[in-house]
């Protein structure tokens, strides 16, 4: 085990996979000479050369399509978005090409590509630079999505995403890049579709993913001072979804809060609520409550931004609501 930042862990995963497979390459804006907009690819140009670490023009639609085409031909591109906000320009290639290709070719053309970069809000970046893009991706059959919350998960999930034969989006967080944590040395791969209990408790389940895991843990710490023990389930992977882990937690606590950074309308949480009422209705002692970003574009002003983001307090209140406290 070594203590690494989340950023270093992502770098380690890419290097681990590029060392073992020449068909893996990294392309995106500023990934090579600038070392990455968030320095995730630091040193990789020097290590792998400009054949495999490639600065693209600011052409999200174009370089995403190029990477999808390269993946169709059997390479394994890591397509970096400076942030997922900008990947909205590329969604045609993600959804119309990458996600549908295997199906419309009757299995002839897999697309083993990784789309990665930060999703969600950082600090005061306002509307166009602060949105959680998970729903755009998981809505479409053919795409997989993982959302590592810790350095260890960042390394293991990114490595698994690169090895997976399908398009996998790896959504990171600008505010996570400096987070430190223990990361297994050497080969470290976490299978997709396995949730992780980040804290055990039997009173209420806080189910969440990505950066919000840290908000959930703070809320759980607050609740613990009032002798309420929250189970914090980090989904880690949204598609495939570890349904068993969700159902197991629901069966133990009978009370669920879903916490996410995105908007509520047709959000990830909406899907989880539907799933729970479908498969664990009888286990519930209270309706599931969702905590999400306010249903508005992200405002700039500090006070408004804080109001719009899901807060520790909102999670604590939601937990008390499902506990009828």
């Amino acid at each position: 085990m070594a203590e690494l930042t989340y950023r270093e862990a992502l770098n380690a995963a890419m290097c681990q996979e590029m060392d073992r497979d020449d068909s893996v390459f990294l392309m995106g804006e500023e990934v090579a000479e600038y070392d990455g907009a968030y320095k995730v690819s630091r040193g990789m140009l020097e290590r792998y050369g400009d054949r495999r670490v490639v600065d693209s023009p600011i052409s999200e639609l174009g370089f995403t399509g190029l990477c999808v085409g390269a993946a169709m031909a059997g390479l394994r591109p890591i397509c970096e978005f400076m942030t997922f906000n900008f990947s909205i320009l590329a969604l045609d290639q993600v959804i119309n090409s990458a996600a549908k290709m295997l199906y419309m070719t009757n299995g002839q053309v897999p697309v083993p590509i990784v789309f990665r970069g930060p999703t969600g809000a950082a600090l005061q970046l306002s509307a166009q630079h602060s949105q959680a893009c998970e729903t755009y991706y998981v809505h479409s059959p053919g795409v997989k999505l993982v959302t590592p919350a810790t350095p260890a998960d960042a390394k293991g999930l990114l490595a698994a995403a690169i090895r997976d034969d399908d398009p996998v989006a790896v959504m990171e967080g600008e505010l996570l890049y400096n987070v430190r944590g223990e990361v297994p040395d050497g080969e470290h791969v976490i299978p997709l579709g396995v949730a992780d209990r980040k804290r055990a408790g039997n009173d209420v389940s806080i189910v969440t993913h990505g950066k919000m895991v840290h908000v959930a843990l703070q809320a759980a710490a607050t609740l613990a001072r009032e002798e309420i023990e929250a189970d914090v389930l980090d989904l880690r992977s949204i598609r495939p979804l570890d349904v068993d882990a969700i159902l197991e937690s629901v069966a133990r606590t009978n009370r669920v809060v879903y916490l996410e950074e995105g908007w509520p309308f047709a959000g990830v949480g909406a899907q989880i609520v539907a799933l729970i009422q479908d498969e664990a209705f009888d286990e519930l002692d209270a309706p599931v409550v969702r905590v999400t970003q306010a249903d508005v574009p992200m405002p700039y002003a500090k006070n408004l931004e804080q109001l719009a983001k899901p807060s520790v307090k909102a999670v604590v209140d939601a937990c008390k609501r499902v506990l009828y406290l």
Partner: peptide, 15 residues
């Protein structure tokens, strides 16, 4: 068939 090339061992891909 052929929505995904790899049906992962864990988790559900279709809901």
């Amino acid at each position: 068939d052929h929505v995904y090339a790899e049906i992962n061992e864990h988790g559900r891909l279709f809901l």
